[in-house]
Computed example of a mutant assay.
Amino acid sequence: MTKLVFWHGWGMSPDVWTDFMKDLCEVLSGDTVYEAMPLPGYAGTGLPDGDSLSSWVDALMEGMPEPIVLCGWSMGAVLALSAACRYPERIERLVLFGATPCFVERHGWQAGMSQESARHFRDGVRADPVATLRRFVALFNRQDKQARAIVRRLSGLDIPPSPVLDAGLDFLDRADFRSLVPHIRQKVLLVHGENDPLMPPDAALWLAENLPDATLEILPDVAHAPFLSDSRQCARFVGAFLGD
């Protein structure tokens, strides 16, 4: 039996995985188990105490002793990189959509959001989280072949409380897992959109070059949500990866 666990992105919901899991059922064996988890603070869960860089992963992995295939998107993918190092015995493989080891630009890292843009975005979330989140969804799907459908899909999700959004932005502002990446020994599948404006393809290329065992698939005409833009192709990628 294979268990796939899914971690969603900032401001989103476990429901983003629903259609993709249906397509995975078409390509994976019938004894595969699927679990879409809420990130800390989402879907009525609480924010854990302590440093978010470690406590969030610890909270997500609590009560999960059996080995899993961990699938993460965006912020969920960033968390998954940390989890692979903190819990190597519990994570068999990683499947990462729109991943980056470092969300914000800093010394030696230009494949991220500028510090100024990150500050403006946080100010917008604090002033009007609903409007800012809608603009955010439209922005990261702007150059996707399925942009309208994806925006409609994501705009209908429940929005978490403002303190949860703010805590997530704090996590993303501080997270820099580049030093961890060479120590991740699990096989990793990276799926990235060629037109991703949020996590540039250069971030995926860096991961592919620095992870010890990674496969990179870049989808043309796709932005930040590959598994929503081309769900069936992404399911085929995962099926081939797990069958390897």
Results as ranks from 00 to 15, higher is better:
131 A>R: 15
187 K>R: 15
178 R>Q: 15
242 L>N: 07
60 L>W: 02
29 S>I: 00
219 L>P: 00
179 S>D: 14
29 S>F: 00
165 L>D: 04
38 P>Y: 13
93 R>F: 01
41 G>Q: 06
25 C>G: 06
88 P>K: 08
167 A>Q: 11
168 G>N: 12
53 L>H: 06
97 F>E: 06
180 L>V: 05
51 D>T: 03
82 S>Y: 02
85 C>N: 12
113 M>G: 02
138 A>K: 09
184 I>R: 04
7 W>G: 03
168 G>R: 05
43 A>Y: 07
110 Q>V: 12
228 L>C: 03
225 A>S: 14
69 V>C: 10
146 Q>M: 11
5 V>N: 04
170 D>N: 07
12 M>R: 01
144 D>I: 09
206 W>E: 06
178 R>L: 15
160 P>E: 08
61 M>D: 09
55 S>D: 08
28 L>W: 00
117 S>F: 11
141 N>P: 00
80 A>L: 11
35 E>P: 01
33 V>A: 15
14 P>F: 08
63 G>N: 12
26 E>G: 03
192 H>G: 06
178 R>C: 15
51 D>M: 04
40 P>T: 15
4 L>M: 07
108 G>Y: 09
76 G>Y: 02
131 A>G: 06
176 D>Y: 13
130 V>R: 12
183 H>P: 03
11 G>E: 09
30 G>L: 02
53 L>F: 10
126 R>V: 13
137 V>Y: 12
55 S>G: 11
97 F>Q: 05
103 F>A: 08
21 M>L: 04
51 D>I: 02
164 V>H: 03
97 F>N: 05
198 L>S: 10
133 L>H: 15
203 A>L: 02
68 I>N: 00
225 A>L: 04
68 I>R: 09
55 S>E: 12
19 D>T: 03
16 V>H: 01
112 G>E: 13
109 W>D: 14
205 L>F: 08
170 D>H: 08
120 H>P: 00
70 L>V: 09
148 R>T: 04
99 A>D: 05
20 F>W: 13
148 R>A: 14
195 N>K: 13
70 L>E: 09
206 W>C: 09
119 R>E: 01
73 W>D: 04
80 A>H: 06
209 E>K: 15
81 L>M: 05
128 D>W: 01
184 I>K: 06
28 L>Y: 00
65 P>K: 11
173 D>S: 14
95 V>N: 07
64 M>Y: 04
75 M>C: 08
172 L>F: 13
199 M>L: 05
37 M>I: 12
122 R>E: 14
71 C>M: 08
67 P>V: 07
50 G>H: 06
23 D>Q: 15
195 N>S: 10
5 V>K: 06
140 F>C: 07
109 W>E: 13
172 L>M: 15
234 C>N: 03
209 E>A: 15
216 L>V: 14
220 P>L: 08
233 Q>N: 11
66 E>R: 10
106 R>M: 11
111 A>S: 15
92 E>M: 02
89 E>T: 10
